[in-house]
Design a protein around this nucleic acid. Structure first.
Lengths: 325, 325
DNA sequence: CTGAAAGCGCTAACAC
DNA sequence: GTGTTAGCGCTTTCAG
C-alpha cells in the first residue's frame, strides 16, 4: 500500500509538503499541490490512520457501548449518538456488551487501547475500569444508567417517577392487585423501576419478579405470577422486550390484556399499537438521550475541565387500551 | 499515560523485555518478568494499540457495516458476527450505514484508514470503494446482499425462491389478486423478492409498489394499493419493518389480516405471534448468516489465496394465521 | 513556502 | 535470555 513517501517521491517533493497539502493545513504553492494531488491519485494513496493518530495523539472516533443491540431502545439511542457525532466529523463504533460484564470490560479495554476520543457507555455492571479510562484521560459519559461511584457526565431518564406514575395510572384504572416485572438486580434502571412501583403500591402490596431484560425470562417470571393462588390483575413491565414474553404468557393462559390483566410496559416499541388491545407504554426519549450524551461527550473532549453535568429527561406515559378494562 | 519505556525504566530492564513479557512471546527470566509485571501495574500501564498495530501492521478488529441498526434482522446478524469473532479474539465494531450510500462510503473509508483486519458488509448501494479496499488487501465479505461486479466471498439467502414460494403459498390459500410491497430498486434483496413474486403470479398479474425498507414508506405504499379500484386481496411484504406499516394501513381501513387481506412478511419478528391473527413469515437465518460471514472473513484473513466461496442459505416459511381466511 | 529530521509507542531483527 | 536499534507512516517543529 502506498505511503506518504511514495507520494512525495513521485511528486518530487518532501513528505512534509505532501502532508501539508493533503491536510490543507499551511498553505502550499498551487503548482506543487497539484503535483501532490495527482501523484496521490495515481498511486491510490490512502492515509494510514494508525500512523496519523499515533503521531497526533488523538482519534476522531467515539465508542458507544450498549447493553443490548437487540433492544430497540438502545438502537434508537445509537442513532441519536451517531447523528450528533456525525455533525462534528466523528465516527462512532458501536460495541454490544450484551448485558455481559466481561464483554463490557473487554470493549472498554479496546476503547482505551485504541485510544478513542471518548466513550458513551450504557453500563451493564459496576464497570470498574471506567475509573481507569477516566484517570487516563479518556472522557466517558454514562447514558441510561448511572455509573456508580464515579462522578462524570450522565444523561438519564427519571425512570423512578415514570414507574411510580405508571403504577398509579393502573391503580386509577381500578386494578387492585398490581404486580411488577423488572430487570436484574444491580441494573439501575431495573432497580429504579421496581422502587417506583413499590412507592406507588406500598411495600405491603408488593408482588414482583425480577428477570433478565429479555423475553424468555419475562415469560417465565410472568407465568409464576399469573399462576399464583391470587394472581395480579395488572402488571408493570420494565421494557418492551420483556413485554413480548409477558404477552406470550398471557396468551397461553387465554388471558386478555386490559380486561383480564392491565398492562403498562416501558418503551414504545413499533408494534405496541399493532396488538390487540394496543399497549399502554412509558415512552422514553431514546434518540434524544443519545444525542444529548454525544453532545456532552464532545463538550467534555473539547474541555476536560468543564463542570460535570447530569441531564435527566422525563419519560412520557402513553395511554392506550391495555391499561383499562 | 505511561509508556513501555516508563515500565522498562522502573523495572530496570529494556523495552524489549517488557514487550516480551507482556506479550508472552519469547520466554523471559521469571524474576525479570515479575519485576516487569509489578512495574506495569504500579504505573497503570496500558499498551498503546495504535503503536502496536502500526508496528505489527495488523489489527484484531473487524468492521461490520450494516444497512439499518433498527432492523431486527441486522441486529441478529450482528450478534452472529460478534459471537464468532469473539471466539478467535477479534473485536467487532458495528457501523450503521443507515441505508445511506454516503455513510456507507464514509465507514468503508474509516475501515480502510484504521486498517481493520477485515470487513463484513451488507451493501446499501453499489459500494464502489469496496474494490479499493480489496485491492489494498483488506478482505471484505458481503452478507445478505451480493456485491455487484466484484467476486468475493459472500453469504446470501435464497430470497428469490423464498419470495416465490411464499407467493405460491398465498395462491394456494385461495387468494386471487396478490400484491407485493418490496424495498428500493437497486437493493438486491428487494429486487429478488420482487422477481420471486413476479415469477409466481406472472407479469400480467403484477401489482406491486416499492418503498423504503421502513414502516412509514410501506404504510403509504400499502395504502395506495389498498385504495385501488380493485385492491389486492393478499400482500407479500419484503421485511418486518415494512410489515408494521402495512398492518397500520390495514388497521386504519378496518381490514383484517387473513380474512380480508392475506399477509406474508419476510423476517420473523419477535412480535409476529403476538398480533391477531399471528403473522405468517419467511424466517431468514440471520444469526447464522452473521456467523457464516465472520467465519469466511476469518478464513480469508488467514489465507488471502483461498478460493472464493459463496454460501447460500435457505429461508423457511412459517405458516401462521395471516395467510388464510 | 519548503525540506530535513525528530519522534509518537511499540515490536522484531540482530547482536551479544 | 536480554539489550540495542531500526523502523511502522505520519505530523510538526525548526531552519532555510
Amino acid at each position: 500500500m502506498a505511503t506518504i513517501s511514495d507520494v512525495a517521491a513521485r511528486a518530487g517533493v518532501s513528505t512534509a509538503t505532501v502532508s501539508r497539502t493533503l491536510n490543507g493545513k499551511s498553505t502550499v504553492d498551487p503548482e506543487l499541490a497539484a503535483r501532490v494531488v495527482t501523484a496521490a491519485e495515481e498511486l491510490g494513496y490512502q492515509p494510514n490512520g494508525l500512523a496519523r493518530n499515533l503521531r497526533r495523539q488523538e482519534t476522531a472516533v467515539l465508542a458507544l457501548i450498549i447493553s443490548d443491540v437487540e433492544n430497540p431502545f438502545f438502537t434508537a439511542l445509537a442513532r441519536g449518538v451517531e447523528d450528533l457525532a456525525q455533525t462534528s466529523g466523528y465516527s462512532v463504533v458501536l460495541c454490544n456488551a450484551d448485558e455481559n460484564v466481561d464483554k463490557e470490560r473487554r470493549y472498554l479495554d479496546v476503547a482505551l487501547q485504541e485510544r478513542v476520543a471518548g466513550v458513551v457507555l450504557s453500563p451493564t455492571g459496576p464497570a470498574t475500569n471506567v475509573a481507569l479510562l477516566r484517570r487516563l484521560g479518556t472522557p466517558v459519559v454514562a447514558v441510561d444508567r448511572p455509573l456508580a461511584g464515579t462522578d462524570g457526565d450522565q444523561v438519564l431518564v427519571n425512570t423512578h417517577r415514570a414507574a411510580r406514575d405508571a403504577t398509579r395510572h393502573l391503580m386509577a384504572g381500578g386494578y387492585r392487585r398490581i404486580g411488577c416485572l423488572s430487570g436484574p438486580a444491580g441494573v439501575r434502571t431495573a432497580d429504579d423501576r421496581l422502587t417506583g412501583y413499590l412507592d406507588a403500591v406500598g411495600e405491603e402490596n408488593a408482588l414482583y419478579r425480577r428477570a433478565s431484560y429479555r423475553a424468555e425470562g419475562a415469560r417465565l417470571a410472568a407465568g409464576e405470577l399469573l399462576d399464583l393462588a391470587t394472581p395480579p390483575d395488572a402488571l408493570l413491565i420494565a421494557n418492551s422486550t420483556m413485554a413480548i414474553g409477558v404477552l406470550e404468557a398471557l396468551a397461553t393462559r387465554a388471558l386478555r390484556p386490559g380486561r383480564d390483566v392491565g398492562l403498562v410496559s416501558f418503551d414504545d416499541a413499533p408494534w405496541a399499537t399493532l396488538i390487540d388491545p394496543p399497549l399502554t407504554v412509558v415512552a422514553q426519549p431514546a434518540y434524544e438521550l443519545g444525542r444529548a450524551a454525544a453532545q456532552l461527550l464532545l463538550a467534555r473532549i473539547a474541555d476536560h475541565t468543564r463542570p460535570v453535568v447530569t441531564t435527566t429527561m422525563d419519560a412520557r406515559l402513553i395511554v392506550r387500551e391495555s391499561s383499562h378494562r
